[in-house]
């Protein structure tokens, strides 16, 4: 026989070794995630209760709750999405469905990619200069939302584009061949099919927005503001910034430690819920598209 047993044994051995290496590395990923989560939960669980979630901070933020920071973050998420979703989704549709392959399309894509690569602190600086100062919004929910919205815009555009690209052209052709316009084709056939993936992209960007500190630093976040906003021109506290403040420059950093872990836990919990929601929505709409 030309193929020796030794070669086969060798092959099998290599297979096993390679497999185990992959296994170890993926275990490292899982373990570090578990380690972070359990560390946060272990340190933060003691402060989590209803009052913590629904009351104002007290005693120089060493006691009381984080209610205004939670509300602030929710406001910023909502505000940035109101801005980023329509612009991002429509741009994605335009790029993928309407532009032919031209220098213009390549230019838009280049710009979107570059936008995605800008560090978030630069967005913060830009937001402060444009929204806070030039447009005169001051430190406010609207200035922060616009800055955050601008930051996640590329994510929304790209996921929309990818989701649309995943829809097979045969569906577009089938629709156009029936005398549908391009708009009808996009609205009635392409978008419903791409919707589950677009939703996922949007919700992932919600996770990103809720956790970013740099862009809100100069545009909206308040160090300590124990009241709820009454308009979009008010400042708010926000979870990530609050975490930063009480960990580094609070009135008593040591005494605030449990609250910092509690805040981290709430933030992680929020992102986790959002991700689960994304999954559920994707499954729901994925099914609906087929049954419709």
């Amino acid at each position: 026989m030309i193929i020796s047993k030794k070669v086969i044994r060798n092959k099998n051995l290599k297979e096993k070794v390679a497999f185990n290496i992959f296994r170890v590395f993926s275990a490292i990923v899982v373990l570090s995630l578990v380690a972070i989560l359990s560390f946060i939960i272990y340190n933060g669980i003691s402060v989590i209760n209803w009052n913590f979630l629904t009351q104002m901070p007290e005693d120089g933020m060493t006691k009381g709750g984080i209610y205004p920071a939670i509300i602030g973050t929710l406001c910023l998420v909502a505000g940035s999405m109101i801005f980023a979703i329509p612009i991002g989704v429509f741009s994605g549709i335009y790029i993928n469905e309407y532009t032919k392959d031209s220098w213009y399309k390549r230019f838009i894509k280049l710009m979107t990619n570059n936008l995605a690569g800008i560090p978030s602190i630069v967005f913060g600086l830009f937001g402060m200069s444009l929204f806070v100062n030039t447009l005169g919004f001051g430190d406010s929910i609207i200035a922060g939302s616009l800055t955050l919205g601008l930051m996640v815009l590329p994510v929304v555009i790209r996921t929309t584009e990818e989701a649309l690209k995943a829809v097979d052209n045969s569906f577009r052709h089938g629709s156009l061949a029936l005398g549908a316009t391009k708009l009808q084709t996009v609205r009635k056939v392409v978008l419903p099919m791409a919707f589950p993936n677009i939703i996922t992209g949007i919700i992932l960007s919600v996770g990103r927005v809720s956790g970013e500190t740099a862009p809100i630093l100069f545009t909206v976040a308040a160090y300590f503001l124990p009241k709820l906003p009454s308009s979009i021109f008010d400042q708010v506290m926000a979870l990530p910034y609050h975490l930063y403040v009480i960990s580094t420059s609070g009135t008593n950093v040591e005494a605030s430690r449990p609250i910092a872990y509690g805040t981290a836990m709430v933030l992680i919990g929020f992102v986790l819920i959002v991700n689960l929601l994304a999954n559920a929505l994707r499954k729901y709409f994925g099914k609906k598209v087929k049954m419709n």
């Binding site: 052709h173 089938g174 629709s175 029936l178 005398g179 549908a180 056939v189 099919m193 419709n292």
Partner: peptide, 18 residues
């Protein structure tokens, strides 16, 4: 290349868009 819609809506599609 039927659309991911019901059998009925597939046939009705061309009429609806017109």
């Amino acid at each position: 290349n039927p659309f991911p819609k019901s059998i009925f809506e597939n046939v009705a599609y061309g009429l609806r868009v017109n």
